[in-house]
Design a binder for these strands. Structure first.
Lengths: 194, 194
DNA sequence: GAGTATCTTGAACGAACATTCAAGAACTAA
DNA sequence: TTAGTTCTTGAATGTTCGTTCAAGATACTC
């Protein structure tokens, strides 16, 4: 017996960054061996092929994003304050370097949805879960009396998700602009209105 | 002397569809020769290379989209009615086949922004012009008393653009869903409020 | 410490890629 | 009809791609 030598999470984060940077098609195996420090054989042994490495990276990305999400709502403060902090964090991402302003899930979805049905389904499910988490937070805010609106929590969550998608795309044409924060503020305001 | 035989617009629309369908990297020259009906030599003679064909396609896409935009506002009716019809048309696109729900500009931006600065600049400028056209319509609606809001027209245009970006991404995970229309309606409502 | 199972290594593979170019076809002008 | 110019054709090119696999290295078991 003998265990693999590499750190799986470390490898997957390196692959994540590579895919985020160049997209799936343009990220060559050569680039992936360089980024991960693994030789081709090891990658194929551990992840079957390039597609498998993307799937594993998406899975890791999902977990990382999930953990991050939980962190924002773990603190003792109004739910809406946590939500605002969560949105503002996304704004910060949008105003940072090119790699961070994109979301690996939506980027991969856009590139591969038409070519790979099962990847499309996987990503759609992850995004749906995220939406449901947000919906639960809106519901919580309503129950605690923080939020007074007649609108359905699920609708609010969808609207926020749509806004965040839009924000990220918008950021591509507006590097480090105060406009992103302005739009995010407007979005938050519209969500919490009446 | 002798003129080229092919119809440039027809060729560019075929290329546009190919790029929209598979993305730039995954659209091979072989696929492009098939889609356009042109032989490699003709493409390289007319557009220099694959990248040149994309640029020409983007230019054509810009013109087509511009013409389409103007059509919505040429009719004699309240500006806001035209705007609503314009948004609803996008909803229809989002609910149609996979190829139509994406925008070639944002799709190419997402794929190539980090690798090709001049393509990024070109696309950013086209999107900025679109935003300004929308801004002008909001301004017009204000002047005509259709819209009563304290908000800056440019801000409204940015918010709408963000919403449309988000709508298109959202549509990728929700094929032919009533939810898209619901979100668009909410977006329009938020824009025209107070 | 010998034997064995597993992991690592990286050169080698065929396939697919963007691009080229010389030969052939077609149109124009005289 | 002919000469000249331009466009079309598609096989060939060199490169890069994802993937394989046999040889070597390493750790565990008994």
């Amino acid at each position: 017996m003998r265990n693999a030598e590499f750190d799986r999470e470390q490898v997957l984060r390196a692959a994540m960054n590579a895919f985020l940077h160049k997209g799936y098609a343009k990220t060559s195996m050569q680039a992936l061996t360089k980024a991960t420090g693994l030789h081709p054989g090891s990658i194929y042994c551990a992840f079957e092929n390039k597609r498998g490495l993307l799937l594993a990276s998406l899975e890791q990305y999902k977990q990382d994003r999930n953990d991050e999400f939980q962190q924002f709502f773990i603190q003792e403060r109004p739910v809406l304050d946590s939500l605002k902090a969560y949105i503002d964090n996304i704004v910060t991402e949008c105003n940072s370097c090119d790699t961070a302003k994109a979301c690996l899930l939506t980027k991969s979805l856009s590139e591969l949805a038409e070519q790979d049905e099962s990847i499309k389904i996987f990503i759609s499910e992850v995004l749906e879960q995220w939406q449901q988490s947000l919906s639960a937070k809106f519901e919580q805010a309503k129950k605690l009396g923080e939020l007074t609106t007649t609108k359905d929590s699920k609708h609010l969550a969808r609207y926020l998700v749509m806004g965040i998608y839009g924000l990220r795309t918008f950021a591509h044409t507006h590097p480090q602009s105060a406009v992103i924060q302005q739009l995010a503020d407007q979005l938050y305001e519209d969500l919490c209105r009446e």
